[in-house]
């Protein structure tokens, strides 16, 4: 499906959608939203790109394999921060009890491990959306032509 209006409008709004998704993820500990909401917005923006251009262009930006690796690394960030708390002497995912510095409340760099965990969840959710879309839309014979 090659449509000029769809391509131009999506090219125009994609940066704003991705910036908003990044904002929601990075301010997950301060404002409404968090890893899941922002990750869903970022994943939807990548799906919009792959839809409005074609699947080959979307795969060139972020291929199926790379999004699978990102998906696993998001879960690893989450588990790694939990295990780091155990190494520092707290429970799993303990924040202040494990001695992680919290910073000033209300600042962007605050709340200890929660901001990093939210970032990991954002990566995980965004790449899960993209992997789900690729798995569903790709043909079994790996032909990249779009109907």
């Amino acid at each position: 499906m090659e449509d000029v209006i769809v391509r131009y409008v999506s090219r125009f709004i994609l940066p704003f959608v991705q910036l908003y998704g990044l904002y929601v993820v990075l301010h997950g500990h301060l404002s409404p939203g968090g890893g899941f909401s922002g990750g869903a917005v970022i994943g939807a923006s990548m799906i919009l790109y792959a839809l409005s251009f074609n699947l080959a262009a979307g795969s060139k930006k972020l291929s199926h394999d790379v999004s699978s690796i990102l998906e696993s690394s998001g879960a690893l960030i989450f588990a790694g921060m939990g295990l780091l708390s155990i190494l520092l002497g707290g429970n799993f995912l303990a924040n202040r009890a494990a001695g992680i510095p919290l910073g000033t409340p209300g600042n962007l760099f605050s709340s200890g491990s929660i901001a990093i965990i939210t970032f990991g969840v954002g990566i995980k959710v965004a790449s899960t959306m993209i992997t789900l879309f690729y798995s569903l839309i790709e043909e079994e014979g790996h032909s990249h032509d779009h109907h």
Partner: peptide, 26 residues
Amino acid sequence: APDIAITEAAIGAGVTTLLLVAAISK
């Protein structure tokens, strides 16, 4: 519930519709 509103707008109106249309096309 603004956080649920963001999620619903992205998941419900965006991704779910897209995945269902992809499923219909198959």
